[in-house]
Design a protein around this nucleic acid. Structure first.
Lengths: 206, 206
DNA sequence: GAAGTCGCCTACAGGTTTTAGGCAAATATG
DNA sequence: CATATTTGCCTAAAACCTGTAGGCGACTTC
């Protein structure tokens, strides 16, 4: 009987695809075995458990997303960087809803510390270099940015914005503009932060 | 044999408690039957399915949360109302983590439209009355507030903020202050919005 | 080509979901 | 109070998912 050539990596990758197709919740060892045309028990040589599979998918997605964000951020600073970060994040969620859900899996602290999650936090801090924030404001801002981006994407994907006619794209721009203005207002006074004194930001077209 | 006195309501309520104890994910028809000391099949006279149970718990939690927010908002306006809304939301999540998770369940549009979710949106809009925002800015702001609150609480509960020493309570105040300042800056110029011209907001103590 | 490792298999045990049908307790009817 | 009806919880059983143990054939290595 020909071998299927299973490896942990291939299983995780296929699991990520499966998540995008049927939802992360519905990713199951059985479904994955079916997809490879092998018996369920065969997967347990490569995976410790169902939870292990989900954790690996989450780590994979975090890594992939971090890569995208890093690419988007390259060579940008200030508001440009902020918008690029935001869009990379949101685009990934739209393109890979299952993997995005996977990144929201609760990891135990041990695993979280080794994950690409720390890169996300570092990149967020890097963006804030364009805004001259002192500690602890910088940490507050990191948390706020993470909250807004994650919250917006989650609610949008959950359909929470669907009942109102206003374009979600427009709201997204408005939010990013607002965050930029907010961070500029929070900047330490007296430093040269590029654009100089905080001004009223331009309103989006609508 | 004595009857257990099962009703859909009692099951949903017990399911909500169970969610707080073991996590919403772990809420199962079997576990619920165990808790009532009855056989699993007995619950299917009161619940259509496992998904039905989870949906009902979600609706219950949304309703309960809406009630709390409404209480918190009574008699308040402006930044007071904003902070009360935010705290009510976050306190509920801390007090009832399982129920809070339940409110994040994806509902089909039909169900969502009949849920207390719409009350949440209305109350958010009510807060914005203190900030003189014109459409579509008002809708953008509703979405932003929802995103920040939901995102912050989600990340905080997932432990995403645990790796940094800064107090999450302090960050929360910072975020609420920032949102207040942001909304005041976004207000339509020329209207009497209480505090008059937008000023630099006071920094939190830290 | 023999020896040993590795990969996928069969078999099985335990748990959850859901349907179908039965019996007894509660309730309504005369 | 006796009887008829409804209702509530039960047993039984099928389908599916998780996880463990052990086997056998297929690759690797020399």
């Amino acid at each position: 009987m020909a071998r299927a050539g299973l490896t942990t990596e291939r299983l995780v990758e296929a699991g990520a695809e499966l998540a995008d197709e049927v939802g992360f919740e519905q990713v199951t060892v059985s479904a994955l075995a079916r997809r490879f045309g092998v018996k369920v028990a065969s997967l347990y040589s490569h995976l410790k458990s169902s939870h292990d599979l989900k954790t690996r998918i989450a780590l994979f997605a975090l890594e992939e997303l971090a890569g995208r964000v890093a690419d988007a951020l390259a060579g940008r600073a200030g508001k440009d960087a902020l918008a690029a970060f935001a869009d990379a994040y949101r685009d990934y969620a739209h393109e890979h809803p299952g993997r995005y859900d996977a990144t929201r899996l609760r990891l135990d602290p041990e695993t979280a510390a080794r994950s690409a999650g720390v890169r996300h936090a570092q990149m967020t801090r890097a963006i804030l270099r364009g805004y001259d924030l002192a500690e602890p404001d910088q940490t507050h801002a990191v948390r706020m940015l993470g909250s807004v981006f994650h919250g917006y994407v989650s609610l949008e994907m959950a359909g929470s914005f669907a009942h109102t006619a206003v374009d979600t794209e427009e709201s997204w721009s408005w939010v990013v503009d607002s965050l930029d203005a907010l961070l500029r207002n929070r900047a330490v006074p007296g430093t040269t932060s590029g654009t100089g004194a905080p001004e009223r930001e331009s309103r989006p077209a609508g």
